[in-house]
Write a protein that binds this DNA or RNA. Structure first.
Lengths: 352, 352
DNA sequence: CGACATTATGACACCGGTGTCAGACTGTAT
DNA sequence: ATACAGTCTGACACCGGTGTCATAATGTCG
C-alpha cells in the first residue's frame, strides 16, 4: 500500500496546494470517493465522508475551481459590465452605478455566486468575451444607454446564446431581458409633485431625444403628466445634458443666458440637478424660492446638498436583487419577464 | 480526411462553443498548432497563424479560461475582499470604499486582470478561499480595520503563501504588505490647519484607541502636532465613533450633552464629520463660525454638504493603482515594500 | 443455495486547453 | 551522398476535478 505511487500528486509535497488525490491517499480511498464525499453525495458511506472531510480540513484543501468549472462547464460566477458615459471623468464613477454595484455584489453573494466586475468602454469588443470564455455564466449590463452600436452587440450576445440582463429602459424592438425603474412613472411623479406645489412653468434638463431611452422615458412621463393639466413644456425650456454635474451646470447656465424663465426644473438625474442648482445659485436664483428642483436617482449626495434635493428614488437594493435573480433564472432556463420597479418620490428642501 | 473523427469536438455542432479542435479541423492542422498560433508563438508559420486567427474569428472562438487556467495554474484574476463595519447599514456601502473599488477596478483592467469582488463579514472564514481555489492569483483586502480575530486570519494567509495586500494602517507586528494613506501625516495636516485658523480648542471624534489602527494614527498625528504647540487634546473632548454618519451624530450629541466645549472638531472620517455637523447645527452651534470641522477621506459628499467640508483627501486613484501594482509584483515574486501615500488637505467652508 | 436488490467503491474517460518531445521537411555545408 | 542546423508540425501527457460504468460486498427473499 505504502509503496503505491499516487498518480497526480506526490505524498507529502507541501509546495503545492493539496489535491483530492492527497486526501485520497491519507484517507485510504480512491480520489473518486473523495470527490463524492466532499460534495456530500449520498452514495458515500457516512463514516468515510466524515473522515474525508476531516482530512480535507486538516490539509486546508479547497476545490480547484478551474478544474471543477472545466468539467461541469459552468463557473458560479456572474460578470458585471459597467458602461460609462465616455465623457465621464476617468477617476469618478457615477455614484448611482456604484450604488447598484454594491447591491448587485450583495445579491450575488447571497446566491452563492462570485462577481466579476469590469469597466467597459462602449467602443471595445466586450461582447461575449466573458461568457464564451467560461469566465462567467451570465452577464449583467449596467449603464445609461449609450446605444450607438450597442444594439448590434446585444444582437451578437443573443446570437451566441449568451445569458444576460440589462439595466435600463426596455426598448420595444430589443429582445433582451431588462430590469429597470419605471422611468416614465418616475417622471410622472415629479410632474405631479410640481403640480401640487403649483410650479408648472417647468424646465427639463437631460436628454429629450430618444438617444438615451431612460432619460427620454423620464421626460415623457413628466411631459405627458403636465399635458394632462394642459400644461406644455416648451422646447425652449429643454436643455440637453449627460449625467454629470458639469453637464447639468453648463446646460442650466445656457438656459439662463438665453433668458429662459421657469419656476421649476426637472433634471433627468441627481448629478445634473446638483449642477443645475449650482448654476442657479450662482445666477442669484434661489432654490426652492424662485425655482423648485427635482432630480432622479436619489444618490447619497442628494441628501447632502444644500438645499437638499427632492428626487425620484430608484430602489437600488431591489434592483440589484432583481438583476441577479432574473439572470439566474435565465441561466437555469426558466421563464423570465422584464421587470419594472416602482420609483418613489423623496421630497426634500429643493421643492418646498 | 473527411471521415476522420475529431477527438474532442464533433465537426459542426453549433450547440456548444467552438473549441480549438474545431479550428484545427477547419484549418487542417493539429490542435496543438492552433493553440500555438492563437498565442502568437514564433514557432508557427506566418501563413498558418493568419489562417488560424481568421477561422477563430469566424467561429467566434474564445479561449476557455477554465481549461487555460487549470493548465497554467493561474487565473489572471485578482479578488477584492471588502470588509465592512458590521454595524453598517446593509444597503449602504461606505462611499470611500466604493471609490476605492472604482479605482481598483480600473487599475486591474489596465493590467489585464479580471477582478472578483466580494463582501465579507469579518466573522466568516474567507481566508484563503479565493486563492487556494485558484479563483484568483491574489487578494486585495479592503476595510477599516476590524482587527479582532483578523490577525490570525492574516497569519493563515501568510502560512498558505497566499499573495495579498492590505489597505490600511501598517501595523509593526504584522508582516503583511500594506498600502495606505499616511494617516499620521493626515492628522497632522488637520492640526496644522486648525492652528493656522487659531482654533486650538479641539475635539476629536473617531477612535482614539488602537482598536482601529487607521483612526488611531490620524488621532496621533493630530494630537502630536498640537502638542508641539503645547496644546493638549483633553480626554473629555474625545468621543468614540465608527465610520458612519449616525455614529458621528450621536457621538457629537453626547459631547454636547456633557457640556463639553470646543471651537474645532477633527473627525476621523467624512461620514463622522457629516453626522457631527448635523448634530452641531441641531444644537444651534454654527459651523464654521462657532466650530471649525475637518474630516478625512474627501468622499464625494464632502463637497456637497453645507457648509462644504474641509477634509484630508486620500488619493484613491493612486491608492487603487498601488494596491494592484504591489500585488502583481508580489505575485511575480518581486521585491515589494509597504507604500505610504501622501494625503492632501482640501480646505472648504467648514473651516473658514 | 441461487436470484436479485442495495450499498459503497474504484477505474476510467472526459472537460479544453498548454507544454514537451519527437520527427518531418527543407536548405546548406561537407 | 551525408551530416547537420533550422523551421514547422503532430502526438501525447498533463492540469484537477466530475460523472459514468462496472464491480465487490452485503443483505433479503423464495
Amino acid at each position: 500500500m505504502a509503496d503505491n505511487v499516487t498518480v497526480q500528486s506526490v505524498e507529502k509535497n507541501m509546495k503545492g496546494k493539496a489535491t483530492s488525490f492527497d486526501i485520497a491517499h491519507y484517507a485510504g480511498v480512491s480520489q473518486s470517493t473523495v470527490s463524492r464525499a466532499l460534495r456530500n453525495s449520498p452514495l458515500v458511506n457516512e463514516e468515510t465522508r466524515r473522515r474525508v472531510h476531516e482530512i480535507a480540513k486538516k490539509l486546508n484543501y479547497k476545490v480547484d475551481k478551474n478544474a471543477s468549472n472545466l468539467r461541469t462547464q459552468q463557473s458560479s460566477t456572474l460578470a458585471l459590465l459597467l458602461f460609462e458615459d465616455p465623457t465621464e471623468d476617468e477617476s469618478q464613477i457615477n455614484p448611482f452605478f456604484l450604488s447598484m454595484l454594491g447591491s448587485i455584489t450583495r445579491a450575488c453573494a447571497k446566491e452563492g455566486y462570485d462577481l466579476l466586475v469590469s469597466f467597459q468602454s462602449t467602443s471595445s469588443d466586450w461582447h461575449a468575451d466573458y461568457e464564451d470564455s467560461h469566465r462567467a455564466d451570465g452577464l449583467i449590463l449596467l449603464g445609461y444607454g449609450d446605444y450607438i452600436d450597442y444594439q448590434s452587440k446585444l444582437q451578437t450576445l443573443l446570437d451566441n446564446h449568451t445569458k444576460f440582463v440589462c439595466w435600463g429602459a426596455s426598448v420595444d424592438d430589443r429582445p433582451d431581458l431588462t430590469v429597470s425603474c419605471d422611468n416614465y412613472g418616475g417622471g410622472a411623479l415629479a410632474a405631479k409633485h410640481l403640480i401640487e406645489m403649483v410650479r408648472t412653468d417647468c424646465a427639463f434638463i437631460g436628454d429629450a431625444s430618444d438617444h438615451s431611452p431612460e432619460f427620454f422615458a423620464r421626460f415623457k412621463g413628466f411631459r405627458d403628466t403636465l399635458k394632462q393639466k394642459a400644461i406644455e413644456v416648451s422646447d425652449r425650456k429643454i436643455a440637453n445634458a449627460i449625467s454629470t454635474e458639469d453637464s447639468g451646470y453648463h446646460a442650466t447656465r445656457s438656459l439662463i443666458a438665453n433668458n429662459v424663465t421657469f419656476n421649476a426644473l426637472f433634471a433627468a438625474s441627481d448629478l445634473i440637478a446638483i449642477g443645475a442648482i449650482k448654476a442657479l445659485q450662482e445666477a442669484g436664483i434661489r432654490v426652492p424660492h424662485d425655482v423648485h428642483v427635482v432630480g432622479f436617482d436619489n444618490i447619497a449626495a442628494a441628501g447632502y446638498v444644500s438645499p437638499s434635493l427632492t428626487t425620484v428614488q430608484q430602489n437600488t437594493t431591489l434592483a440589484g436583487q432583481m438583476l441577479v435573480d432574473n439572470l439566474l433564472r435565465l441561466i437555469r432556463g426558466e421563464q423570465v419577464a422584464d421587470t419594472l420597479l416602482p420609483p418613489k418620490l423623496i421630497i426634500r428642501q429643493s421643492s418646498r
